[in-house]
């Protein structure tokens, strides 16, 4: 065991301070120290994308980041996407298109795609599939996720805003 360090982060707008070992992965910190279990561990080696969060404005794998590296930073997790019972345009499109089955990979997809739609408001199917290829889903076969992204992109363009 090595000396613990204080980690202070803001997650979904709320401040957290915990003393943790440097080796603690950020995903474990979020799940077990902050109680935000919406971020999932699918592989812990950076391939599946289930642990994707937004760290200081960009999507990252929280299984490949140590909690101490997030000291002083702002984090958004799936719990922070929508207010209360409501859904973002992307979440709503996932719902309507049946873009999730077991739902385990879904938070990672949502975090990666929220960034994607901000950067690429009018994506074609190729761009969508290229982006999706960084997250693995074993249930859906992806087709409905592609449709959901197309629907969300269109609605966001019509609204002229991002989620």
């Amino acid at each position: 065991m090595t000396a613990r360090r204080e980690v202070r982060v803001t997650v979904n707008g709320r401040a957290y301070a915990r003393n943790v070992e440097p080796r603690m992965l950020l995903v474990d910190f979020l799940r077990h120290e902050c109680g935000l279990t919406g971020t999932h561990v699918g592989c812990a080696h950076g391939v599946c994308g289930a642990c994707t969060i937004v760290l200081d404005g960009v999507s990252v794998r929280s299984c490949l980041t140590f909690a101490v590296q997030a000291e002083g930073k702002e984090i958004t997790t799936v719990e922070g996407l929508a207010d209360g019972e409501s859904l973002t345009a992307l979440q709503q499109a996932f719902h309507e298109n049946h873009a999730l089955q077991c739902g385990y990979c879904t938070p990672g997809f949502l975090m990666s795609l929220t960034e994607f739609l901000r950067e690429t408001p009018n994506p074609d199917e190729g761009q969508i599939r290229e982006r999706l290829s960084g997250n693995l889903c074993r249930c859906t076969g992806y087709a409905n996720i592609v449709s959901a992204v197309q629907m969300a992109a269109q609605r966001l363009r019509e609204k002229g805003g991002v989620s």
Partner: peptide, 12 residues
């Protein structure tokens, strides 16, 4: 660069 990993990997 677009061939390296995935966007989320390249972010970091």
């Amino acid at each position: 660069m677009p061939y390296m990993g995935h966007a989320t990997i390249r972010n970091r």
